[in-house]
Amino acid sequence: MNVVVCLKQVPGTTQVKIDPETNTLIRQGIENIINPFDTYAIEEGVRLRERFGGKVTAISMGPPQAETALKEAISLGADEGILLSDPAFAGADTWATSCTLFMALRKLEKYDLIICGRQTLDGDTGQVGPQLAEMLALPFIAYVSQIEEVADGEMRVRRMVEDGYEIMESSLPTVLTVVKEINTPRLPSLRGIARSKSASIPVWGVEELNADPDKVGLSGSFTRVVRIFSPQRVCRGEIFQGDVEDQVDCLISRLKDDGFL
């Protein structure tokens, strides 16, 4: 079973700040990591390979330094990594990102399954999985929490919805996004790290993908970020004084005035 795992390198924290002068994110001093949601995708891919054989290919679009994320994926059990990197890919929105991944997947040999994390830590969109599926004209199942069965070109999975879970079946190949409930990602192994250090990660750019430059990066993006800002806190309210009895009485009277009681 050949599995492709799509992953993204993201800043290792959500506690980012905006530089008031340039109105851009301050990225200095923040370590980059594999998007945590994608580590579940890697683990599930590796587990499927351990059960059914085949290989796990990790693929990522990003700047040259995203190579480290792919190497880390290899240390976690992926067989190979492919980096989609080109200055022309910069500034891509989810559509242009999906389109770039789509062009790369066209180049890949046979695969049975594409797994993505449910969303990224930085963009929080969760759109690349379903958009990639649509471009590849493949079935898509979101929020998968368990792969129950894979046999005869079909799979049966469990996926989370707001009020419970659904058992879904799909033909293969298919695209899944997975949630953290699906597994506990393993840690890297020493042999895996050694393998990742010696692995060479091919880099595919506009030329290798034979890409239409109008469909990648900022020029291929439909959306524009007009501005970014930090959320504002509501101003401080009223703190009741006095002993416990006074405070509670005060609260009850306010809640009554406001129509809550």
Binding site: D93, T94, W95, S98, Q119, D124, T125, G126, Q127, G129, P130, Q131, A133, E134, M135, F140, A142, Y143, M160, V161, E162, S221, F222, T223
Partner: peptide
Amino acid sequence: ATALGRAFIPRVAAALPTGLSAD
């Protein structure tokens, strides 16, 4: 931006195609 909306609306946007922002 429900489980359903976040799963299939991106596909609609990709197919049309047009831009979409999430959540």
